[in-house]
């Protein structure tokens, strides 16, 4: 787990460059509160304390990465209780949770404090101007802004290019990560790098991320435009939390299927639901909810794709440990 956390460090560094120290502080609060909640609840439930395995820390980091940088500092603590205590420890601890803890935290915060979670976006720091002030104040007094997906959803593609520049600039900026958004989901490049690192180390396989991203790309090309087959797939692939979700959250081995075929179905499901919510749903971004919804299906997918030859009587899912 600590290896996974380590692969997120480059994205964290870029986030400090883009949003100031605030992003780092919120990530730290989130990480520490997740570890604390885990330790306290394990003590209270009379289980061995397993904070040092790093899973709670990873949950904390990922949860901070999918919330806006402008939220109050206490917010992640509430999310941590939902993510770790309700979603994980009550269900029997690591290995038994059905839903991805970081995303449960996010979904709960979204439902509980919608104003913070939909409006606390801050624009990237303009380093050519008052960089130092903003850096120190952590972007606190920066005005809130709209995320690319919010602009795209509410005002359409022309307003989108007006605000973020023509498409080639957009692709460049979004790929590197200079855009308003959640703390850690800004840079497609660094997340891709982290994902590749995990694949090389054998922590994740390509099935889920590739099928998720490919589905979003193809479907956004077909349905994303004014007419059919005229969408801008790259806008959808590079915006929002798709990269982070596909590489780090959909691949969580407790809450996603283990069979390869099931993983591809899972990925396609995540991609399709994401685009459904983005284009037709009530929220501008749908990655978190689509992963949570597919998590509901994981136990069934696991069963449907269980190889027939080795069909065994129902048995306990082996808690994955690393």
């Amino acid at each position: 787990m600590w290896t996974v956390s380590a692969s997120l460090i480059p994205a964290m560094l870029l986030s400090i460059y883009v949003f100031g120290l605030r992003g780092l502080l919120i990530t730290l609060v989130s990480m520490i509160s997740c570890m604390a909640v885990e330790a306290i609840s394990q003590k209270a439930l009379g289980r061995p304390v397993s904070v040092s395995d790093g899973s709670a820390a990873l949950t904390g980091i990922l949860m901070a990465f999918v919330i806006p940088p402008g939220v109050p500092y206490w917010l992640p603590i509430v999310g941590a209780v939902a993510a770790i205590f309700i979603n994980k420890e009550l269900m029997g601890g690591l290995g038994f949770n059905i839903w991805n803890p970081a995303l449960v935290g996010r979904a709960l915060l979204m439902a509980a404090f919608p104003v913070y979670m939909t409006a606390a976006w801050i624009p990237p720091i303009d380093w050519s101007k008052s960089a130092v002030d903003v850096y120190i104040s952590g972007g606190l007094d920066a005005v809130s802004t709209a995320t690319p997906l919010q602009v795209l959803k509410q005002y359409g593609l022309s307003a989108f290019t007006q605000q973020f520049g023509n498409l080639s600039t957009v692709y460049q900026n979004f790929f590197i990560g200079i855009k308003p958004g959640c703390i850690g989901e800004t840079s497609a490049l660094l997340i891709l790098a982290g994902g590749l690192f995990m694949m090389i180390r054998g922590i994740i396989t390509w099935h889920i991320p590739v099928s998720t991203i490919a589905t979003v790309a193809v479907l956004s090309w077909i349905f994303g435009g004014e007419t059919w087959f005229s969408g801008q797939p790259l806008v959808h692939v590079l915006s929002g939390g798709l990269m982070l979700g596909a590489f780090y959250m959909a691949t969580d081995y407790v809450t996603s299927p283990t069979q390869k075929a099931a993983q591809i179905v899972f990925g396609i499901g995540v991609g399709a639901l994401t685009l459904l919510i983005r284009l037709k749903g009530g929220y501008p971004e749908g990655v978190a909810y689509s992963i949570l919804l597919m998590n509901c299906l994981t136990p069934s997918l696991e069963e449907w794709f269980r190889p027939k030859r080795f069909a065994l009587p129902k048995q306990a899912p082996v808690a994955a440990t690393k």
Binding site: V78, L108, A111, A112, F113, P114
Partner: peptide
């Protein structure tokens, strides 16, 4: 302080 999730079904 409003912890809105409480009045939603989930809460």
């Amino acid at each position: 302080l409003k912890f809105l999730v409480m009045i939603l079904p989930a809460g």
